[in-house]
Amino acid sequence: MTAALSIRNLHKQYDNGFEALKGIDLDVQPGDFFALLGPNGAGKSTTIGIICSLVRKTAGQIAIFGTDIDRNFSLAKQYIGVVPQEFNFNQFEKVIDIVKTQAGYFGLPPKLAAERTEKYLRQLGLWEKRHQRSRMLSGGMKRRLMIARALVHEPRLLVLDEPTAGVDIELRRSMWQFLKAINASGTTIILTTHYLEEAESLCRNVAIIDQGKIIHNTSIKQLLRQLNKEVFVLDTREALTEMPTIEGYPGQLIDEHSFEVEVVKGKSLNKLFANLSERDIHVTSMRNKANRLEELFVSLVEPHRNETAEAQL
């Protein structure tokens, strides 16, 4: 099966001499929902910029559904829809004109362009706003406008660079639903994000990029399995004055009615609860501590950075 995206030995050195990508290899299979994770400045946007020809590569090959972007750029571009990290539409144009114009750039005849524009503006909840100038939209609406614009030629590969940055939780969830539906209907999706939660609930496979190199490329399940401990937050009915010391479950008090405990993956929680019951502490609720991406990075990026640091010595 030809990969939806295949990147080989991709290098990028910017004009100022900065080496943003140091030899990237990546394959994304058709139908996949793929996450590109990495800290600020890792090279995510650079990679995406090269894929959709906004950034010139220094070396390497890229093929979209088997079509080399250097050999048949016209066909390769027909396959891709891109939602960039920064807003890049004309602020003075009307919403409907922005989307319809993009359809025209892809060669869609006017009637089809109008139909598609309506279809995607409706799907993204922007149809009512179609006659507004784009600068009058809220941040979340602007993001959705860029998604509609990216979909109007119905690409086989949709690439989104931090699509949910600056989007509230409710809207974020509805955007996830939307992207899942698009993916279920056969569109391959690649997205970059800083939220592991986002990658976890959407994506099947993931690559982690740091300092211009892919340091990890695996399935989300595999990746999460590598998180060898989890932190849970427990709320209690009784007021606590200090952290209940329980052997094997280190933790700390958050406030009177809650504390967090660290649990090594695979370890039973029964002992923890039994211990709490003995002390007459009643747990009323329990949740995963939210931002696990940090932990993940610490566990993955740090050793790799030490290695490179050592290599440099």
Partner: peptide, 18 residues
């Protein structure tokens, strides 16, 4: 220049327009 400045030139650059 305005298209460059607002970066909406990218709409053309990502499209297959020769």
């Amino acid at each position: 220049f305005g298209t460059k400045f607002q970066r909406s030139i990218e709409e053309l650059l990502v499209s297959p327009v020769p």
